[in-house]
Nucleic acid binder design. Sequence first.
DNA 1: GTCAATTCACATGAAAGAGACCACGGTCTAGTG
DNA 2: CTAGACCGTGGTCTCTTTCATGTGAATTGACGA
Length: 402
Amino acid sequence: MGKEEKGLNNFFENYLKQDPIFINKSILHWNYTPDKILHREKQITEIAKILAPSLKLEKPSNLFIYGKTGTGKTCIVKYVTQEMGEVAKKKKLNLKVVYINCKYQRVADTEYRLIAEIIKNLGETIPTTGLPTKDVYDFFFRIVEEQKTLLILIMDEIDHVVKKMGDEMLYTLTRINDQLKESKVSIIGITNDLNFINNLEPRVKSSLSEEEMLFPPYDAVQLKEILEQRAKIGFKKDVLEEGLISKCAALAAKEHGDARRALELLRVAGELAEREGKNLVTMEDVDVAQEKIDRDNILEAIKTSPKQHQLILQSILQLKKQNGKEEIFTGQVFEVYKTIGTKYGISILTSRRVSDIISELDMFGIIQTKLVNKGRHGRTREICVNLSSSTTEEIEKILPVG
DNA sequence: GTCAATTCACATGAAAGAGACCACGGTCTAGTG
DNA sequence: CTAGACCGTGGTCTCTTTCATGTGAATTGACGA
């Protein structure tokens, strides 16, 4: 016991003595906003131009922004509105900016909760459930009106709103100004679904996208500069192997120029090196980081998903083990699921539901499915699991039974 | 051999139910002056 | 008299079931050469 304690002590002391690789890790986090945002000057000025009327308390046009993940949409909108907020504060203008991410589950995935969330951001509270939705709207209108303010409503990942609850609610929101006398609301919608706007009802489309902007992906060179800018202040000097940043940039550029991904790669690689007590981050660390990020995402998704989902995933994995390379189909999964379920006394869902769960697993990226038509033999989803064996093992530890 | 009809094994949609959660208003109860 | 406990009602939310409809190539079978 005493010996162990001493060992642990040593470990901690060594840990502290170690030359840390980082100066400030949070700089390498994607939601850190640097002083100077690179390669987005054009977008910044454009957004500023569009939003500027709000400083005269005139309602700016609704703005619709689209671009792939990690192209800086959120970052820049936040940056511009923040700056504006400060100017407004100095001039004592009643300007409010509310940022809502519509995707983060459990926060705002119903009409009710979304409005409740906006209300919360305006500094009021409303019960989390139990009220008729109409009451929530009325309450929202009332407080906006009472505050006599110009409200800029930023709705990130706005496509999720429509997917979950249709565009009726967006229509209501865009028409809100008709009902307000003292206040005005303008909406900034952000999405990474490039087709989203075309699937909207025309009346919503026209009012939501009075202005439109596209954020192009970063290319490898730009990513590299962004990484360099942050690495300079986030990492200690000379801890990065030659060409390491280029590698991160290149890897991320392959994945549709995602700056968030690039930063994560760099940071995780640094953490890995740090953990091993090295004082140089190497190329291998980046490779390991790449794998680790994917695996962690998947594991996290599985851990937090409901038991039935886990059970179905387990059925899929078991099938994969059994028939080796052969493809797996929905029907088979359902059969295996049924036997496992009954064996362990877990209630069995209908095949209809199982089918949905399989596509949910697909969306999470845990499995890949493809719709195949096998003529006489019907139509089904072909399921494949592209996980390394170590990941599979990790997953199996989490799974409910067996 | 050819062509259209059939058929399979699910996918996909819509609607509705079950059970959990919660706010609200009314009623009851115990403590206080 | 009043604050707080307790209860019933009516609303939402999530997960699920039930019913209904769709899909598209392999298969079948009729037909003609």
